[in-house]
Every structure is written in C-alpha cells, then in structure tokens.
Amino acid sequence: MTGFLSALPGAASQGLIWGVMAIGVYITYKILDIADLTVDGSFCTGGAVFVMLFSSGVNVWLAMLAALLAGMLAGLVTGLLHTVCGIPAILAGILTQLGLYSVNMAIMDMKASVALPITQADTLDKLLVSLRFVQGPKAGYPAWRHPIVVVGLFTAVLIAILYWYFGTELGASLRATGSNPNMARAQGIDTDLAKVLGLILSNGMVALSGALLCQYNGANDINVGRGAIVIGLAAVIIGEVLFSKVFINFALKLLAVSIGAIIYYVVITAVLKLGNLNANYLKLLTALVVAVFLTIPYWKGKYFSKPVNPAKKEEGSHA
C-alpha cells in the first residue's frame, strides 16, 4: 500500500503527460470520427526529435517546437494518404505508423534508445519536466517544478488554445465535417481539407506529449509509442463515461480527457503495485480495460434500450 501511495504523484504526472496525447486522440476520434493509428508512431517521433535536438544543445522550447512540427508533418502524411490517395483512414494511419518506425530510428541515429544528458545538473535544470522533480523540495527541487504543476499548466494552456480554435470558423468546419460530411460539403466546407487539418493538429499534440514523456523519463525509446492509441482511447472513454453528464462545455470535455488519462495511470499503477504484477502485463490490461469500456455503451443500447432520440452522440458546445 505504501508502495502504491508513494507511486501516486509519479502516476498522476505520467497520466497528465499522456493526457496531452489523449486530447490529440480526442480530436480525431471524437471530433472527426476517424480512428487514427499514426499516433503510435508520431508519439515516438516527438520524443526522438526532442532528445536529439536537446542533447545537441538546442533550447528546450525550440526542441519542443520542432517535436510539434515533426508530429504535424506525420499527421499531414496520413491526411494526404487518406484524402488525396483515397486510402481508408485506418490503413493510412497504419502505413504512416509503419514508415515512422524507420524514420524514428533514423532520427535517433539508428539507436533503439537515446538518453538525455541529465547527469549534469545544469542540463537537468533546463528540462520542463523530469521524474526527479516529483520528489520535490526534500530532494532539493522547488515545488513549482513538480510535473503535476508544470504539465497541468501546459495542459490548461493547450485546452484554452483548442477551445478558441474550435470556436472559430475553421474549427467549426472541422466539427461539422466529423458530425455530418454531407451537410458540411453542402455548406461549402472542404471536408478533405478539414480532415487533413484535424490530423495535423492531433499528431502535433501527440508529438508534444512524446517530447514531454521523453523529458520525464530522461530518455526516448523506439517502442515508447507502442499502444499509445489504445491509451488515448482509454483516456477519452474513461473521461466520457465519468464526466459526460456534468461536463457539457467543450473545454471541460477536453479536461475530462486529461483527467481520464490520470485515472487510467493511477488505476494501472494500483494494479501493478498492489497486485504485484509484472509490468509486461500492462498492455494486456490496457486492451482489456478499453474493450470493456467500449462494450458497455454498445450493450446498453442493444439489450437495455429505452426509447432514445435520434441524436447519435453529444458533442462539445461552444456557447
């Protein structure tokens, strides 16, 4: 139990970091109605770009920006494969993801894992987040540098930007495209462009999350993004199941996704620590959790259906 309690702040920190990725997944999965598997590759791309640039002395914010742009580029590729080449979205994402493995290896100088030079105190000090900052003042790190504070703020700023964006004409055209593409085209919206923009935005967020996790862990591993999409879905679904009744506003829905990711991580940590489970069972556990949460609403509708109105799903409001 004490093992679990002491692991709690770290789990929440990691959850918050993955939450940034989950918000990216929300954009494609919930808003655009696309299951985008690029994520598993672009998450690692973010970390790879960051670790190489930062290690060579580039400013932390510039390295983050480069990670963001690299992720956006990955999203662009998937978007073009889907809209210009007519490849189904799922397959387009798988193709990009596959290709990204080689790209990520190339970025990391063909090494499967690259560590940040955090043994030097001044380098560590330049990072936005690190595992070590979790220990707080008693280990000599200021409380405001705790990852929960830093990533929490980071997430709040991202949510604010997204809230603004999805309230603009361009953002509204993305939401319309996901809600009803026929209607969108009839209103003069270029639905292909909207999908590409959504994929770019989403994968940019995913790569940012990858860059944050790379800092947190002090290294980037080629397999770090494996199964990321499922973790993202888990966060989206947990957030939805728990908060959809109370969080109607769009910004709050995004917050729910972030909280969903934290809950996911805390639960996983609890199971691993309390159940003394080998960490390699984590993926199986995740797959089960997501399968169960996806099944519940389906069975509810199928076997316990009460008269419902034709509204398929409720989307965020921008009132």
């Binding site: 939401r175 969108a184 209103q187 409001s317």
Partner: peptide, 22 residues
C-alpha cells in the same frame, strides 16, 4: 449537423461559399 447547436448550424450555413478563417 446533429451534434452541433441550432445556432452553430445556422452560422455554418451563413458562411456558405466563403473562406473559413480564424
């Protein structure tokens, strides 16, 4: 668009044929 509000739907229609901006 079922998942959007009445006024949002109308706002989309009011911009038919115009470039969508920020």
């Amino acid at each position: 668009a079922a998942t959007m509000q009445i006024e949002e739907n109308m706002a989309l229609a009011a911009r038919r044929g115009q470039a969508r901006t920020l």
